[in-house]
């Protein structure tokens, strides 16, 4: 699929905002990624916003870690096998 941004030679702040989530997830095309990074090099407000978004994504992953009852789950798994036999 050809990107609608293939003909562009720069991104403005509105385009950065529009593509921010894809950038965060590494879903931009090579060309879009290049223009995106160029913009962040000269635009401090956008750069700060994107750094914050990336930090937030990491933060959510880190903070939602759970205490997992692994042994209990393994016992359930074994019990399951016994029942199935």
């Amino acid at each position: 699929m050809k990107s609608k941004n293939a003909h562009k030679d720069h991104f403005d702040c509105a385009e950065i905002e529009e593509l921010a989530q894809k950038y965060i997830d590494g879903r931009l095309t090579d060309h879009e990624d290049k223009l995106f990074k160029e913009h962040l090099e000269y635009c401090v407000p956008c750069d700060k916003k994107l750094k914050f978004e990336l930090q937030l994504k990491e933060f959510v992953q880190l903070k939602s870690k759970e205490e997992v009852p692994t042994e209990k789950l393994k016992r359930k798994l074994n019990k399951l096998f016994e029942e199935l036999n």
Binding site: K48, K51, F52, Q55, F59, K63, S64, K65
Partner: peptide, 14 residues
């Protein structure tokens, strides 16, 4: 602003 996230407890995020 960068330190803001440090305020949160795990339970807030969950």
């Amino acid at each position: 602003k960068e330190d803001f996230l440090d305020n949160f407890f795990d339970d807030d995020v969950k």
